[in-house]
Computed example of a mutant assay.
Amino acid sequence: MEVAVKVEVDLEKCVGAGQCVLAADDVFDQRDSDGLVDLLDASPPEARADDVRHAAAVCPASAILVKD
């Protein structure tokens, strides 16, 4: 059984750059109303962990936290 990573986003920090969506569009989206991050999957499978970690790393506002 795959162990999923846990993802949290801080909407107070998010600036709507969309880098997370480019890195993992099945985990992150942007809200139509204001462009801020919309977390689609707070527990993505381990197979997506590298992309989710990349999304967190490229977030200019450090609004994404990934827990193993």
Rank of each mutant, 00 (worst) to 15 (best):
M1H: 15
E2L: 12
E2H: 14
E2M: 15
A4N: 14
A4V: 10
K6S: 13
V7W: 11
V7N: 04
V7T: 09
E8F: 06
V9R: 01
V9I: 14
D10L: 05
L11F: 05
L11A: 07
L11T: 11
E12D: 14
K13Y: 06
K13W: 00
C14L: 09
G16Q: 02
A17N: 04
A17Q: 02
A17V: 00
A17D: 03
A17I: 01
Q19M: 11
C20Q: 08
V21F: 03
L22W: 02
A24C: 10
D25P: 12
D25T: 03
D25Y: 01
D26V: 03
F28M: 02
F28D: 05
D29C: 00
D29A: 12
Q30G: 00
Q30T: 00
Q30C: 01
Q30R: 07
R31M: 03
D32V: 03
S33E: 11
D34M: 04
G35V: 00
G35Q: 06
G35E: 06
L36Q: 12
L36R: 05
L36V: 03
V37Y: 02
V37L: 11
V37Q: 00
D38L: 12
D38V: 01
L39R: 07
L40D: 07
D41M: 08
A42P: 10
S43L: 02
P44H: 10
P44A: 08
P45K: 14
P45Y: 13
E46L: 15
E46V: 14
A47F: 08
R48H: 09
D50Q: 13
D50N: 13
D50V: 12
D50L: 13
V52N: 09
V52A: 11
V52I: 09
R53K: 15
R53Y: 13
A55H: 10
A55Q: 09
A56I: 11
A56L: 08
A57C: 01
V58R: 12
P60K: 12
P60M: 12
A61T: 05
A61N: 05
A61W: 03
A61H: 02
S62D: 15
S62C: 01
I64M: 06
I64G: 08
L65I: 02
L65A: 10
L65Q: 10
V66C: 07
K67F: 01
K67S: 14
D68V: 02
